[in-house]
Design a protein around this nucleic acid. Structure first.
Length: 423
RNA sequence: GGCGCCGUGGCCGAGUGGUUAGGCAGAGGCCUGCAAAGCCUCGUACACCGGUUCAAAUCCGGUCGGCGCCUCCA
């Protein structure tokens, strides 16, 4: 199987299966309900894990929850521990409702403080980091590879607000001394404080995988500085770190990135409640993981129609044709889910299609809806009315059935019928 | 300004040198008491300008446009 890596900017062949594939994905910073865009790396990584296991790999998926962050302090107003805990729970609840299962491990930054401090000490010991008034900063200029992942050259990075504690404006914080208004902090060799934004991922990846692993994932917007800094920390400390970098494209809302800072967000919770998990997953499936994805009314309606189309297949006769190999071909080529979706649309073999949909958590589309007995009574009465030529009664009965949320369809034969739940 | 991704028929979206993508929407037809569903038929698309080639959506160069990142971001 081949996957595109941001680092090499080309497709890379995965080691042959069977073999271990360790995947670390950057999960969300939790300070409110996550939005649909935050759900994309979760969905993609869960699908990828299923597919790699299908291919015979031994996959371990670690997806962190960052529960220490400036945003949390800002949003919590003195109750950051509580907010982080609540928001972590919302995240689990909302992604659970996608029906794709859970990653193998979901470490939290707050549960990895010891590892974080150890790693920082090591970086200080290697003279890659320095202390300044209780803060610890990474010395970017000392790490020759800095900028390799993002293609940024350190001297071209725009200068930010000057921070007098930094030797160099490009240096980034590994540890921040506690400031007023911050209600969560830990002891460290440099006094009370808390980790900077990037160090937790380096520490947690190593905690679960050791010095090297196969795949690191996350949103495209994390390439710089987040992942660049992770590389600086981990490789600076002598670890090989990730071999392949997968960055998923952003969700767009009227041509603009869906982002909390832009304010054009739809929560995953609302999206699931309004459209259902099947429509949402079908929408995700129709966009290649590396490309931007349009989240719009039209796109959702189209996805819903596609999902309904699969339901229809299971309502008609199963027919031979199509092969699993078609799906393998699509997914082995950079995990091309839009191609996989196109392939499945051609399948009329129930068993084959169900297996394909199952892979993406859409096996529920194969399940038929069982109408309540009273609707069957109405449908039978309608069929009788029809065969007796009483079409006024038949139409009235059909309307009654529709009002109950179901659709009655005639099936070959005078009294045959099918009841279908309207969605 | 720097780094990167991308521009395919009404819309979404595969496709990296020659062969049908697929879906959604739409039109016509078959079927049907009428419907619904299904099935059949219908679109000759690849931003623009050059170049390479027997052959280019696909390779090369340029132009225009969109999007992301450049220390809050999935």
């Amino acid at each position: 199987m081949r996957l595109y890596s941001t680092h090499s900017r080309q497709l890379e062949e995965l080691p042959a299966s069977p073999g271990p594939i360790r995947i670390y994905v950057c999960g969300p910073t939790v300070y409110q309900r996550i939005h649909v865009g935050n759900g994309r790396p979760f969905v993609i990584s869960m699908w990828l894990r299923r597919w790699l296991r299908e291919c015979g790999y031994e996959v371990t998926l670690v997806e962190n929850i960052t529960d220490i962050n400036d945003k949390i302090y800002d949003a919590a107003q003195g109750a950051s521990a509580k907010l982080a805990e609540d928001a972590s729970r919302w995240y689990i609840e909302d992604t659970d409702d996608l029906g794709l299962g859970r990653p193998d491990h979901e470490p939290k930054a707050t549960e990895s403080i010891a590892e974080i401090i150890n790693l920082i000490e090591e970086l200080v010991g290697r003279n890659l980091a320095y202390e300044a008034e209780g803060d610890i900063y990474y010395r970017v200029a000392r790490f020759a590879e800095y900028g390799r992942l993002s293609g940024q050259r350190p001297d071209q990075v725009e200068e930010q607000e000057p921070n007098p504690r930094k030797d160099d404006p490009r240096d980034f914080a590994l540890w921040k001394a506690t400031k007023e208004g911050e209600d969560t902090s830990w002891d460290s060799p440099w006094g009370r404080g808390r980790p900077g934004w990037h160090i937790e991922c380096s520490a947690m990846a190593e905690k679960h995988f050791g010095p090297a692993f196969e795949i690191h994932g996350g949103g495209l917007d994390l390439v710089f500085p987040h992942h660049e800094n992770e590389i600086a920390q981990s490789r600076g400390a002598g670890r090989e770190f990730s071999r392949l970098w997968m960055h998923n494209g952003m969700l767009e809302f009227t041509g603009e990135k869906m982002s909390k800072s832009v304010g054009n967000v739809v929560s995953l919770r609302d999206a699931i409640d309004e459209w259902g998990r099947e429509t949402l997953l079908t929408l995700f499936l129709g966009a290649h993981w590396r490309k931007p994805m349009d989240y719009s009314q039209e796109a959702l309606e189209s996805a819903r129609s596609r999902a309904d189309g699969f339901r229809e297949v299971f309502r008609s006769r199963s027919e031979e044709g199509g092969s699993w190999e078609q799906l393998v071909e699509a997914l082995d080529d950079d995990f091309n889910t839009p191609q996989a979706l196109a392939v499945m649309h051609e399948w009329r073999d129930h068993e084959l299609l169900r297996r394909g949909l199952d892979l993406f958590g859409l096996g529920s589309l194969a399940e038929s809806d069982e109408a309540p007995p009273e609707l069957h009574d109405l449908a039978v009465r309608r069929a009788e009315a029809r065969s007796g030529g009483d079409f006024d009664s038949a139409d009235r009965l059909r309307k009654q059935i529709e009002e109950a949320g179901w659709e009655v369809r005639d099936v070959a034969g005078e009294t045959g019928y099918q009841l279908v739940l309207r969605r």
